[in-house]
């Protein structure tokens, strides 16, 4: 329990890294590290650690920390540019928006009617702030790969909230969720690969042909 809050603060800090850095590879690493931290967090939230918890922690760390980055690196191998090309808002502004969002998440969480055992925890504000960061990255970046990273941050935020709900998700369902996430990133990787073959870059600026 002692390590819970420092780990959550580290996870929050990684949100800002993801928003602030320009190189795609650095964002991938930030999101991967956050995934590893989330996996480890599960060990601290659960009161008694059984086999089920250990398997879940291993699967989570394996997928979020190593599986997804590998899939994304594979998808990126043919895409040339490392830097974000002209995001809708620059990194400074997105950092600022991220900070405002995180502050609002803190304030908002303190007004939420939390169960008594959760009132002193940072889990809920960290979860909401991460969801916000993910949505920010999704909507303001143009490279397909960064949008996937935004989606992964969004899922990380939701995963954090899920830590409070041990009994609601049976083991099989939880594995199902992770499997879906894995397949999702896998399919997105394939599509990105096709985008990079079809167009000169993987900017979604190329994907504006369909409209009314």
């Amino acid at each position: 329990m002692v390590l819970l809050d420092p780990l959550l603060i580290l996870a929050l800090a990684l949100n800002f890294v993801a928003l602030g850095v320009g190189r795609t590879r650095a964002i991938v690493n930030a999101v991967a590290l956050q995934g590893i931290i989330l996996g480890i967090l599960a060990l601290f939230v659960h009161e008694h650690i059984d086999l089920r918890t250990i398997v879940l922690v291993l699967v989570t760390v394996g997928l979020k920390g190593f599986g997804f980055p590998a899939l994304l690196a594979h998808a990126m191998r043919e895409a040339q540019q490392e830097h974000e090309v002209k995001p809708l808002i620059d990194n400074m502004t997105s950092l600022l928006l991220g900070a405002v969002g995180t502050a609002l998440a803190m304030v908002f969480s303190s007004t939420l009617p939390l169960a008594d055992q959760h009132t002193h925890l940072l889990v809920v504000p960290a979860s909401l702030a991460t969801v916000w960061t993910g949505l920010l990255l999704l909507t303001t970046r143009k490279r397909a790969i960064t949008q996937v990273l935004g989606y992964l941050l969004l899922e990380n935020g939701i995963f954090l909230f899920g830590l409070l709900l041990l009994e609601a998700m049976p083991f099989l369902v939880e594995i199902g969720v992770l499997l879906d996430l894995f397949t999702g990133v896998f399919v997105m990787g394939i599509i990105i690969h096709h985008i990079s073959r079809e167009f000169p870059s993987i900017s979604t600026d190329h994907l504006t042909k369909l409209k009314d």
């Binding site: 999702g184 599509i191 079809e198 190329h206 994907l207 369909l210």
Partner: peptide
């Protein structure tokens, strides 16, 4: 290219 665009939008919006 057109179906690629449609698939990307579907996948991303649907997943979010």
């Amino acid at each position: 290219p057109r179906s690629l665009e449609a698939t990307w939008k579907y996948l991303l919006i649907g997943s979010v």
